[in-house]
Amino acid sequence: MKRIEVKAETPGSVIRHEVVPGDAVAEDDPILTIESMKMEIPIPAPVDGRVIEILVAPGEAVAAGQTVAVMEA
């Protein structure tokens, strides 16, 4: 099992989580949604795997490149 950090590609603020830790996800499935550039933008799973932890809460600001969740795959 490899630990994989999921990073935000764009800065924004967290709107909601789309999964809970423990959920299995496929590549490109949304893990959480942020608001950026007036859009609701999903942060997708980079690979197939399982979400271990989501590091940011709704309302919180995230920077581009910030690790927002951890997966194992």
Partner: peptide, 8 residues
Amino acid sequence: NPIFKGGA
């Protein structure tokens, strides 16, 4: 493709 970075 808006699903990635809003299509920016």
